[in-house]
Design a protein around this nucleic acid. Structure first.
Lengths: 177, 177
DNA sequence: CAAAGCTTTTGACCTGCGTCAAAAAAGTCA
DNA sequence: TGACTTTTTTGACGCAGGTCAAAAGCTTTG
């Protein structure tokens, strides 16, 4: 199986639970600790944070995408991120401490954990490069390649903040295409 | 000891080697595979890649900073990055395959490996946020906080490309400060 | 130490994208 | 279905930062 994220539900079956959320519901609220990883089975989630009143999307997770309050999980502090359901969603949930216990008991799965981490890392590297020197239009086109059909599912404002541009600019970019 | 990167030389002593490089020397050339991680003992390194003739710095590593051709290491492909010594440097070198072997033999050190990965990840998250909505000046100030004294050691052009701005703009930003 | 490289600064000019404001369109619900 | 809310589009305008070109400083090396 190619995508390591798809192996998670089976590999960690004994410590994973499945929850459902309604559109608009928060899975986690900024300011609190959160040691849960969320893997989307169906639906769509996003994490976001506030910068001077402005809501900025940090990350999207569509089917078999992973989100979490990374800062809280990795540093043990309260998180700057909130996590929200963009659609009615069913979500696999995985507690990070339980995951570590599980990995101790099943060291053969360290490899999968590492693969997942690397995937997330490379993803970020790519995004960072895009933000470094791509125009608004090019960023948008990149996004469409990585998340085809996202425009039908996520509001323009959320996409714009994710791309680091204003919604007005994104609207104009889209109009011509 | 607070910084996991400082624990690497001891923890992986039996698979690490120490090399020296002269200013300007390449530790790795883009287009080739590279499965080595470089940890700076003294000196300074950077990784960079080309975008339309332009040399873009992807990452700096000063003392106890880590660089590698991440794409090659993680995907096993040839790398888009080159790695260069910015000063005469002494560098710990660690082969990724040997590291995996070592971790199998010493599972107690998986934890350290994971800590290091998380550190790198959070670093990127922070950089990404900075690129998303900070002005040229704010990006520069951020950099100075994270790498104090880097201006005395790295050329303006390299810093500018790392920040995603032109050297002219960086020069002007700096003049006023 | 002079000649040949680099690196940094300065200037003039231009443009992509941000801001503010308001209209238009689409979604939600009693 | 009509009233209200939210999302998207359109317009006018300004500015941060890009581009191009050239001068001024620094380094390196024979």
């Amino acid at each position: 199986m190619q995508n390591p994220l798809r192996q998670i539900p089976e590999a960690f079956a004994d410590i994973i639970s499945l929850q459902t959320y309604r559109k608009g519901q928060l899975l986690h609220r900024a300011g609190q600790r959160c040691h849960t990883l969320f893997l989307v089975k169906t639906g769509a989630l996003r994490s976001f944070y506030l910068v001077e009143e402005r809501d900025v999307t940090a990350h999207f997770a569509l089917e078999y995408g992973l989100v979490g309050a990374v800062d809280s999980i990795m540093k043990g502090t309260s998180s700057r991120y909130s996590i929200e359901a963009l659609e009615d969603s069913t979500v696999y949930e995985l507690n990070y401490a339980e995951l570590e216990g599980h990995l101790n008991r099943h060291p053969g799965q360290e490899r999968l954990a590492r693969q997942v981490t690397q995937l997330l890392y490379l993803d970020l590297v790519e995004r960072l490069e895009g933000m470094t020197f791509l125009s608004a239009r090019a960023r948008y086109e990149h996004l469409l390649e990585r998340y085809p059909g996202i425009t039908q599912r996520v509001s323009l404002g959320h996409i714009a903040s994710y791309l680091g541009i204003t919604q007005e600019t994104l609207s104009r970019v889209r109009r011509q295409g």
